[in-house]
Structures are given as C-alpha cells and as structure tokens.
Simulated scan of single mutants.
Amino acid sequence: MEGPTARFGGSEQVGAGVGPILEKFDAVSQIAVLRGGGLGDLLFAVPALAALKAAYPAATITLLGTPIHRALLEAVESPVDKVVILPFAEGVRPGDEDPDELAAFFADMRCRNFDLAVQLHGGGRYSNPFLQRLGARHTVGTRTPDAAHLERSVPYLYYQHEPLRALEVAGFAGAFPVDLEARLVPAAGGAVPEAAGRDRARPLVVIHPGATDPRRRWPTQKFAQLAAACAADGSRVLLIGDSSERELADRIAALAATPAVHSIAGELNMAGLVAVLADADVVVANDSGPRHLAQALGVPTVGIYWVGNVINAGALGRSLHRVHASWITACPTCGIDITQVGWTAPRCAHDDSLVADIGVGDVYEDVRSLNALKSATQAA
C-alpha cells in the first residue's frame, strides 16, 4: 500500500508507518540485524524483523544475537533465516573480549557480503561502530548524539515503546509495519513437558515471578497470595523461571501451601517454555521475557510494571492483556529520581521493589476476568 510521497532527510518518504517510511534499498539479498540482550530484547525486535522480511521477501535475514535468541528461534516460526551468535564485545554482548575472536567474527561477516545492516541494539555508542565493521553496503539504526552516524539514523530517546522504536528503524530501511507487536507460532512438534502435567478440566495459570532488574519484581508474599487465590478458585498454577529463579519460585509455592500450586522453575528448556506458555489460559508476570513471549504466542497476560517500563514495554491492547503500573518515581530508600535513566543519570545501588504497592486483589480480578473471557470464547 502506497500513499503520497514527500522528501525526508534526502530520501523519499512513501505512505505512513510508526515514523517515516523511506525508499527501499536496491538489490538487497542479505540483511544483518544486530540485537543482543535477553529474551524480551529479541521479542521487541520481532515486528521489525517481520517488516523487513515483508519489504525484502527474497532476502536472507541473519540475526546477530545471543544463545537465548537462537534457542527461541529454534522453538518457533519466525522471519529470521539464520542466527549468528555475537562475540563478547563491550556494549554489545557483555563478557571478556577476545581480540582474535572479534577479528575472526568481522572477517566472517564481511565475507557474507551483507547488503543491509540494521542496528536495533540501543543508542549506538557501541553498537553503531560494531555495525559498521560488518562491511554492509547500507546501514540503518538508532543513535544518540554521541554515537557514530549510520547511512540512515533514527534519534534514540530512551522513553519510546521498544517494538515501535524498532519499527521506526525498519521504516528507515523502507519497511512498512506488518504487526505492531510480536506474533509467534510454536514450531511443529512441540509438546507440553511431562513436568508441567496436563489437566484440561481446570484453567492453567502460569506465573513468572522473576525479572532481570530486582526492582521490577512484585514481592514474594504477594505472588504467593495470588497463587493461593487462583488455586482456591479452581485453577492449576505453575510457577516458571530459569535455574537462577528456582529458589524464588519454590518459596512462593511453599507459601501458597496448596498442591494446586507447583513450581517447575529450572526444569524447562526453551521449547518446553514455549509449550507451557502456549498451553496456559493466563500468564501473570513482572515485566520480563516470559511475559512478552506469552503475549507473542497469543496468550492472555496480566503484567506488573513500574510506570517507566509500561512506556517502553507494556502491551498495547487491553482485550487480552492487562497492565498494573506503579507510579513511584523516586527510590524508596534514597529518594533519587529514578525516571532519569540510560545515559542521563547513574542507577542508585538500591534494589527495593518499585511495584510493591500493586494490590493482590486487583491482579486476581484481572486473572479471573481473562479466565472467564477465554472460557466464554471457547464455549462460543
């Protein structure tokens, strides 16, 4: 679909997207997309990946990502054709850099003759020079004022919805949005792991109590109260998480004190996580990768957010997704302004929960509402 054209930054704008949609590049057969980080970081990039695939359907899209990204993309259908694991590099993939490994990586990338390299990894201070070393004919991405210029650059301002930010970058590469948020389908052959059990007679509520930033975690006691309430209402409750979250999930299950609440944290590989989330009736979680993955799989979610994270990562719709936001703007311990993030201010040393004031009853009512909605939809 094309609309009126206009001049923008020396390129021609066609139609409308999240931002300007610039003219496509010619003769693009190989596309590299840089997106490091965790599970949620990749999911934020999926709409842009889908847009790039639609704009350049004959091109091969290679994601430069992390091991968890490869694991997810092996468990779902996606627009990505290949995954290359990033080497450890400052500001791109944290870890001990090996100069020889980096040199070999960039030599390999240059041999792949990328026509287009797209940077979806932050403000570009480190990622833009990294992208330039790939040797692509064209480069597109975000940049802060102190970052290296790319051929086409979108200004990076921290408070922007991440999937929409990535779509704005894709628009600068000539790609119209296909979806505003990630949509994924489990790969064929995926099955719910035995550890998760099966009981179609009762709704399944999956809870992920973890988050990379401890300030984003709802208190353990509140998760336990929610789990117990859901169990008393007839639901089966599964607590999930990686091996580092096993103790947290076990503690919540113990506090809930009912056999209907069971922890399988640390027991799932990525394919198992996808299968369990896809099988759920409702997923309750902090702002975390599993919540974003559940949403991408089309599963109703109830999210617990600090307000700043709602701006950057909250679900856009409310028919299937509910958001509970804490409006705290200062650290509960030292009082520092926590709305100044990224490059504008250092993070204080305190890990107090910023979402502790969100009530159990409010979250529980949304779980009940979404369970009822799904039951009514299935009955119809």
Score class of each variant (00 low, 15 high):
16 A>K: 08
221 Q>E: 15
62 T>A: 02
36 G>H: 05
130 F>W: 07
346 P>W: 09
250 D>F: 04
21 I>A: 11
136 A>Q: 02
93 R>S: 08
324 H>F: 15
107 A>G: 11
373 L>G: 14
329 T>C: 02
270 M>A: 04
338 I>D: 03
236 R>L: 08
46 V>F: 12
69 H>M: 02
279 D>M: 04
101 E>V: 08
354 L>A: 04
267 E>K: 08
9 G>Y: 03
212 T>K: 07
30 Q>F: 02
285 A>T: 08
364 Y>C: 00
46 V>E: 13
173 A>Q: 06
211 A>D: 09
71 A>C: 03
366 D>R: 03
145 P>F: 03
66 T>V: 00
377 T>P: 07
72 L>C: 04
259 P>G: 10
378 Q>H: 14
155 P>Y: 12
148 A>W: 03
17 G>Y: 12
132 Q>R: 11
360 V>A: 08
196 A>T: 07
33 V>E: 12
360 V>C: 10
274 V>K: 11
87 P>M: 02
308 G>W: 06
280 A>N: 13
299 V>D: 11
241 G>Q: 05
39 L>V: 00
55 A>N: 14
355 V>S: 08
372 A>D: 15
266 G>R: 06
112 R>D: 12
98 D>L: 05
306 W>K: 00
38 G>F: 09
126 Y>I: 01
272 G>L: 06
70 R>E: 15
150 L>Y: 08
164 L>R: 11
295 Q>R: 12
267 E>M: 12
223 F>T: 02
239 L>R: 02
131 L>G: 06
341 V>T: 10
91 G>D: 05
356 A>H: 13
318 R>H: 13
272 G>I: 04
16 A>L: 09
374 K>Y: 09
192 V>E: 13
155 P>K: 03
69 H>P: 04
257 A>S: 15
264 I>D: 05
142 T>F: 10
214 P>E: 05
123 G>L: 00
298 G>E: 13
255 L>I: 07
142 T>Y: 01
170 A>R: 07
271 A>W: 11
126 Y>N: 06
175 A>W: 13
110 R>Y: 03
66 T>N: 00
79 P>R: 01
29 S>K: 12
197 G>E: 14
345 A>I: 01
256 A>Q: 09
355 V>W: 13
262 H>Y: 14
233 D>Y: 13
251 R>N: 14
259 P>H: 04
60 T>L: 04
329 T>V: 09
206 V>C: 10
264 I>C: 07
277 L>I: 04
202 R>C: 08
193 P>T: 02
159 Y>E: 09
366 D>T: 00
45 A>V: 06
347 R>G: 06
279 D>E: 15
1 M>F: 15
252 I>R: 02
213 D>Y: 04
292 H>I: 03
237 V>Y: 11
240 I>C: 14
304 I>Y: 10
281 D>P: 14
324 H>S: 06
141 G>P: 01
163 P>W: 10
153 S>V: 00
25 F>H: 14
34 L>M: 06
